[in-house]
Amino acid sequence: MDKWKQFFRDYGWCYLFIAVPVILFLVFTLYPVLAALVMSFQKYHVLNPKWIGFDNYRMMFQDEVFWKAMWNTFVFTVGTVPLNLFITLGLAILIFPRSTRTQTFFKAAFYLPTVMSGVTLALVWFWIYDPTESGLLNMFLGLFGIENVMWLGKSNSSLFSIMFMTYFINHGAGIILYLAALGGIPKSLYEAADIDHASEWSKFKNITWPLLKPTTLYLLVTSIILSFQVFMSIYLMTQGGPNFATTTIAYLIYEHAFVYYKFGLAAAESFVLGFIIILASIAQFKFMSSDVEY
C-alpha cells in the first residue's frame, strides 16, 4: 500500500497531466472509431440498426464506383505528393539564405493559403477555371489561339485541374519545417565542403539532402495521409464529376453517408481507407527510414 502511495506521490502529477489528452482521445477518437467499426457491420438506422455481417464490405468491393474512387485517389496522391514536396523543398532552399525579415515575409505569404477559407480559395479557382473566355486560364490560352478548355467539365482534365490547385496552395507548413531543418545543419559541414571545392550540387546531394531526410520522411508520410483523405477541393469544385472522374474515396464516403444515409457502407469504406493509409505509412517507414540520419 505504501508502495502505491509512494508511486502516486512521485508520479501522480504525470498521470493527472496526461489524463486530459487521454480522455479527449478516448471520447473523440477511440470511441467514434469503435462505433464506426460496429456500424460497418450494420445496416445503420437511427432507431433500429441491423447486424448484416460483411454485407457492406461485399457491396463495397462489388461497386465499380468504389474502385474508380480508389484509382482516382491513387492518381491524386502520386500526382501531387512528390511534386509538392519538390516545390516545397525548392522554395525553402530559395528562402533560407535571405534575411530573417524576408524569410518571415515568405513564410507568412506561403502559409496564407493554408489558413484561408477553402470556399474563398474555391471562388478564386472557379474564376481561373471558368470554362468560357472570361476564365483566367482560357484567357491566357486564347492569346495563343487555343480554344477554351472545360477544365472541370471534362473527364480527362478535371482531376488534373484539382491536382494543379494543390501545386500552388499546400506549401506553408512544409516550408516552415524545411527552413527549421535547414537551420539545424551545421555550417561547418559546408565550410569543409568549400575547402574541398565542392560544387553547389555536390553540397546539396551530400550534405543538405541526407540531413533533411527526417523532415522529408515526415512530410511524405503526412502528405500521403492527407492526400488519401482529399475531400474539400472535390466537394467545392466538382462534386466528384464529371462521370466520377474526380470522385475520391473520401468524397465517396461522404456521399454514401450524408447523401444516401448508407452509414454502414460509408463506415466500411472508411476502414478500408484507414487500412490502406496504415499500410502505406508502414511501407514508407520501412523502405525510407533505414538511411535517415537523425
Binding site: K154, P242, N243, E255
Partner: peptide
C-alpha cells in the same frame, strides 16, 4: 435517387461534354 446519382448525373455530364 440511386439511379439519379449513380447513372443519370454522370451520364448526362458526359453527354453534355461530348464524351
Amino acid at each position: 435517387d440511386q439511379f439519379k446519382a449513380e447513372v443519370i448525373l454522370p451520364t448526362v455530364q458526359t453527354l453534355l461534354n461530348g464524351e
